[in-house]
Amino acid sequence: MGHKVYGSWLMVHGIVFLLALLTFVCQPTAVYAQPISSAELINNAKKYNGQVVVFEGEAIGEVMVRGDYVWANLSDGSNAIGVWMPLAMADPIKYTGNYKYRGDWVEVIGIFNRACVQHGGDLDIHAQSLEKTLPGRAVRNRINTNKITLVLILLGVLILVWILRLLQRK
């Protein structure tokens, strides 16, 4: 009797284990837990194609709304990659990088596509989640006094040359 109970317990757990194993093996994509650089993704696009990857970078340019979705381009310093995500997912992005702003630094988890079928062969990431890791800010561009000095010196030289030109002409 005891053997029978133990046997059925073993069988149930065995099936559960097998199902768990099958679920893991048959998953369409592998998951990379650590952020992967843009250079690594672009240089080894075939390897990462269709995989769930973690990518982080600064949102640059503008977040471009396309219906219920948006395009956000994230740059990790060496390259920028386009990330396609639902409109609501992009809500945390308040700043995008340009001359006057440092954009929000965000981490996305999503499916990497070497040649996206949905987007005409673009190399992109379809985000499943997004997290802001570092908020953006306005950049304070103080007036460079050295440049002002240089402008004034050169202006003096230019006026001098102009006066000499006029005097010579007379």
Partner: peptide
């Protein structure tokens, strides 16, 4: 409102005009 970049171009104009005026004279 990009002041520093404007200064870069003022420097550029000044140098270009100085050489241009000297040569034409």
């Amino acid at each position: 409102g990009e002041i520093n970049p404007v200064l870069d171009f003022i420097v550029g104009i000044e140098i270009t005009l100085i050489f241009g005026f000297i040569l034409t004279r």
